[in-house]
Amino acid sequence: MDFTMYWFMLPVSTLVATGAMLGGIGGAAMFMPIFLIVFPLLGPEFAIAGPVAAIGVALLTEAFGFSSGLIGYLRRHLIDFKIAKSLIIIAVPSAIVGSFLSQYADPDMLKIMYGALMLILTYIMLRRPSTKEKEKITKDTLAGKFEHIGHERTITDNEANSFKYHLCHPGKGKAFTGIGGFITGLMSVGIGEIVTPQLVKQCKMPVSVAAATSVFVIILTVAAASGTHIYSLISEGGVDAVPWHLVLYTVPGVIIGGQIGSRLQGKFSAEKMEKVFAGLFGVIGIAMISIVFL
C-alpha cells in the first residue's frame, strides 16, 4: 500500500469541502464521481475496488467533514435534541439497512442508481427555498404565525438569544427521513438534502436551529452508514480492504476545507452556489450513467 499515491487528494478534498460548505451540500456527493470516474482515468493502480468501497470512503470522509460544524453548533447550543432524536431513530437504522444491502447490489446498477439520484438532487437543489424565503420563514416563525401547526419549542443559545417556534408534528416527515437515511447508506447521499428543507420549509423551524439540528442528524446517520460499510469491507477482505492510503488525505482535507468554508460564509451568494452545484449534479448524474454503457 503506497501511502503517497493519493497525495493530490489533500488539496482536492479541501476544495470539495470548502465548496460543499458554501453550497450547503454533503461532500460525499462530490467524492463519488471522483472515485468512480476520475480515478480510473488516472490509471488502473488508482482505481478503487468497486462502488461499495467508494461509498464507504466517501461517507467516512463526510463524517469528519461535518465534525467541525457540529462542534460549532454544540458550542452555540442551537441543536433541538428532541426533534433530532425523533429523526435519528428513523434515519440511523435505515442507513444501516441501506449499507448492508449495497454489499449485494450489482456495481453497475449502483452506478445507474447513483446517476439517477444525482439528477433528482439537481431538481431538489433548484427547488430549495431562496434566501429571502428562508428569512421570511424565520421571521414569521419567531413572530408566532405558525402557532396552529403544532407544539411550541424554545431553544436558547449560548448568547442568551431565545428561539420560540411552533413545530409541526415530528412524525410528519419520518417517511422521508427514512428514505433519506436508506439511500445515504445505499449510495452515500440523501439525508442532508431531505432533512434540512423539511425542517425549514415544511416544519417552519428558524433556519439557524434547523441547520444545527440537521447537522447533528446527518453526522450520526453518516457515521452509522460509514461504520457499516467499513465493517463489511474489513469482514470480507481484512483491514487492507479499506483504502487507508486514500483516507489519509481525504479526512484532513475536508477538516481544513470545512474551516475555510465556514470563514467564507456570507462572502458568496448561497443561491448562486446552489445553482452551480445543481448544474454540477446534473453533469455528474449523466456521466455516472454513461460510464456503465460506454
Rank of each mutant, 00 (worst) to 15 (best):
residue 205 M to G: 08
residue 33 P to T: 07
residue 257 G to N: 03
residue 94 S to C: 08
residue 81 F to L: 13
residue 81 F to Q: 06
residue 68 S to A: 15
residue 42 L to E: 10
residue 271 E to W: 15
residue 196 T to A: 13
residue 74 L to T: 10
residue 27 G to Y: 03
residue 209 V to A: 04
residue 62 E to W: 06
residue 291 I to W: 06
residue 189 V to C: 05
residue 77 H to W: 08
residue 134 K to E: 07
residue 134 K to A: 09
residue 224 A to F: 03
residue 138 T to W: 04
residue 233 L to R: 07
residue 74 L to I: 10
residue 293 F to M: 13
residue 172 K to Y: 15
residue 23 G to I: 01
residue 146 F to S: 08
residue 98 G to N: 07
residue 180 G to K: 09
residue 288 M to N: 03
residue 214 S to A: 10
residue 83 I to N: 02
residue 7 W to L: 12
residue 125 M to H: 09
residue 139 K to N: 14
residue 8 F to A: 14
residue 60 L to W: 04
residue 40 P to N: 14
residue 212 A to K: 01
residue 39 F to T: 05
residue 263 R to N: 06
residue 254 V to H: 05
residue 113 M to K: 04
residue 159 E to Y: 11
residue 229 H to K: 12
residue 282 G to D: 04
residue 271 E to R: 14
residue 27 G to I: 03
residue 268 F to V: 12
residue 142 L to K: 13
residue 259 Q to S: 12
residue 257 G to D: 02
residue 63 A to W: 01
residue 205 M to R: 05
residue 284 I to M: 12
residue 118 M to P: 02
residue 253 G to Y: 00
residue 160 A to W: 03
residue 47 A to V: 09
residue 22 L to V: 13
residue 271 E to D: 12
residue 78 L to T: 06
residue 189 V to M: 14
residue 100 F to Q: 05
residue 208 S to M: 12
residue 155 I to S: 02
residue 195 V to M: 06
residue 116 A to T: 11
residue 222 V to W: 00
residue 203 C to Q: 15
residue 128 R to A: 05
residue 138 T to V: 11
residue 159 E to T: 15
residue 150 G to P: 01
residue 281 F to I: 08
residue 177 T to F: 04
residue 40 P to D: 11
residue 182 F to Q: 04
residue 164 K to H: 15
residue 12 V to Q: 08
residue 220 L to V: 03
residue 286 I to C: 04
residue 199 L to V: 09
residue 223 A to W: 02
residue 142 L to G: 10
residue 117 L to I: 06
residue 173 G to Q: 02
residue 43 G to R: 11
residue 123 Y to R: 12
residue 42 L to T: 14
residue 278 A to V: 13
residue 230 I to S: 05
residue 94 S to W: 01
residue 73 Y to L: 08
residue 209 V to M: 05
residue 35 F to Y: 12
residue 92 V to W: 04
residue 64 F to C: 10
residue 122 T to S: 10
residue 102 S to V: 13
residue 8 F to W: 10
residue 32 M to W: 03
residue 190 G to I: 00
residue 47 A to L: 09
residue 242 V to Y: 01
residue 145 K to R: 15
residue 249 Y to V: 10
residue 43 G to Y: 02
residue 134 K to H: 14
residue 287 A to F: 09
residue 232 S to K: 08
residue 100 F to T: 09
residue 18 T to Y: 04
residue 201 K to L: 14
residue 25 I to K: 05
residue 41 L to Q: 13
residue 146 F to V: 10
residue 195 V to I: 10
residue 102 S to K: 00
residue 15 L to H: 08
residue 274 E to P: 02
residue 16 V to W: 01
residue 243 P to R: 07
residue 212 A to L: 06
residue 171 G to W: 03
residue 33 P to H: 05
residue 223 A to R: 08
residue 185 G to H: 06
residue 106 D to V: 06
residue 39 F to K: 09
residue 256 I to D: 03
residue 110 L to N: 00
residue 22 L to F: 06
residue 155 I to W: 02
residue 7 W to K: 13
residue 16 V to Q: 03
residue 160 A to K: 15
residue 44 P to V: 14
residue 264 L to A: 14
residue 5 M to K: 15
residue 288 M to L: 10
residue 232 S to L: 05
residue 84 A to V: 02
residue 284 I to E: 02
residue 70 L to I: 06
residue 149 I to E: 12
residue 241 A to G: 08
